[in-house]
Design a binder for these strands. Sequence first.
DNA 1: CGACCGATTGACT
DNA 2: GTCAATCGGTCGG
Length: 198
Amino acid sequence: MKFKKIPIKYFQRSALDVAPFLLGKLLVRRINNNFLVTRIVETEAYLNDDPASHSFGRITERNKAMYDAGGQFYVYFIYGNYFCVNVVTNVKGHGEAVLVRAVEPVSGIGEMIKNRRNIKNEHDLTNGPGKLCMALNIDKTFYGARTDGEDLFIAYDENPGDFEIGISKRIGLSVSKEIEHRFFIKGNIFVTKHKFNN
DNA sequence: CGACCGATTGACT
DNA sequence: GTCAATCGGTCGG
């Protein structure tokens, strides 16, 4: 399989630009030379002056990847069960990232299903940040890995097609609830089901 | 070292 | 719609 990986420089700008840019791009996982291909349909931007961001405050062992140069993955563990994957943005020292909240399976769906449990319907497979990491078997081994790497990378979709981008408040926060830094593909069934879907 | 809490999910009313 | 599981990260003593 041939992929056109996105050069790292495209991630070395504001998370607010990268978040909508990532919509419609491919998030690809290679396992044993088998490619699990997905299309990104929902993202959220986190800046370092945002109390909801893991980079808020100071540099710690967990958030240090966010302060490193853009174009690498920031993976974190949450609620004792789940991993979530982000793309670090901007140049070194900013503390920004874009959370990948939902993807649409393109190929390798059978393998993704094997990695998940209790799937209720088709879109349940990857319509959430924890779910997509399970389906693609993404864990902390990708912490700090480049976005143009071999086993997990981001690529252009050769035939992206037309879609409209929606913007809304972010999901699951107890602070900074009013900031509209969530971006999604309108009408896509893999976008997380919530109050803010248009 | 102990205590608190979370960028979620799945089970349940 | 509500709610608890579950444990690593973080911070205070």
